[in-house]
Simulated scan of single mutants.
Amino acid sequence: MSTTVFLVILLSAVLHAGWNAAVKASGDRTLSMATVSMAGSFMCILALPFVEGPPPEAWPWMFAGFLGSFGTQAILARAYSTGELSVAYPLTRGLAPVTVTAAGALLFAEMPGPLGLAGVVAIALGVALLAADSMRAGGQAGTSTLGLALSAAVITALYTLANAKGARLSASALDYAVWSSVPNGVVWLGVMLVQRRDLKQHLRTDALRSLGGGLVSNVAYVLVLWCMRQAPVALVSALRETSVLFSILMGVFWLEERASAWRWMAGGMICSGLVLLRSA
């Protein structure tokens, strides 16, 4: 993996953890997740005239990616309401690479070497520590968060593979990202209207978070798709999920969540996985 790809993936990881932390910091997580997604989709709608449409063979993968992305966002919004960012987000994002590695070998005929596999395992062990910490300290709330995060992790792995396939079939990562991001916000708008949520009031008080989160999420998405066109999807996915490390830091220093020894040990395991993946 080249240094450029490595650094771009890390940047994408920081951005992804950042906008999720912003959603967690809001008063209404579901409404905030919806408006961030809507803002991102609106930006992509404005960009449609300037990008090339995906080829026909990419559309089924795009649809699958959309379903997975929307499902994950909805589950995460619920998980953020029952648990901490530095537990829910790492569990969701950190477990996905294990599934991606196995499925990627079948879909793309890409199998990481020994160092790459060791890096994926190290990240998985870090996530296991987080899960244990959640179950030990969270009681019933921890169990609920764990179940939601595990569900989101499986869906994340599936839509990661779908988006990687669609992006590789498209002319560029930007083209695919713009087109595939449009439906998400539209569906969120429909859901909020059906639920009779007060979008106007929320946007009046939280417009900056929504617009900033939408922009940051779009940039993070384009960057990771570009990397998946340059390097094996399993390695990109695993390295991208080092965003869990940044979510731990943001949870502790921004959201004032607790910093147990287990959580810091998990962060150390994730860092070791990062080093191994860089060497792969």
Rank of each mutant, 00 (worst) to 15 (best):
L117Q: 08
W59R: 02
V121A: 15
V236K: 01
D198N: 15
H202A: 13
S237L: 06
M43I: 12
T143C: 02
G268D: 00
I75W: 03
M228P: 07
I75R: 01
T92P: 06
A109M: 07
G212Q: 10
L255R: 04
L245E: 01
P49N: 00
Y176I: 13
G251I: 11
V244Q: 11
M192F: 15
R278P: 04
F63Q: 07
P56K: 04
F246Y: 03
C44I: 04
A118F: 10
R204V: 07
L199M: 15
S247W: 01
V222D: 10
L274K: 06
V5L: 03
T99S: 12
G119R: 08
W254T: 12
V224R: 06
R78K: 15
V236F: 10
F66A: 11
R78Y: 14
G268L: 03
S170F: 14
Y159Q: 09
R197I: 11
H202T: 08
R196E: 10
L276S: 07
G267D: 02
A25P: 03
G267A: 04
S210D: 07
A149S: 15
W188S: 09
V87Y: 13
L239F: 11
A132F: 00
A74T: 13
T72H: 07
E256W: 15
R204N: 15
V219A: 12
A238W: 09
V194F: 05
P54F: 12
V87F: 11
Q230A: 15
R196P: 03
L174C: 05
G18E: 04
W19I: 02
A17F: 00
P54Y: 09
L48K: 00
G267M: 02
V8Q: 08
Y176L: 11
V224N: 10
D28A: 07
A13G: 02
W262I: 02
A231C: 06
L193N: 03
P55I: 02
S237W: 05
S180D: 12
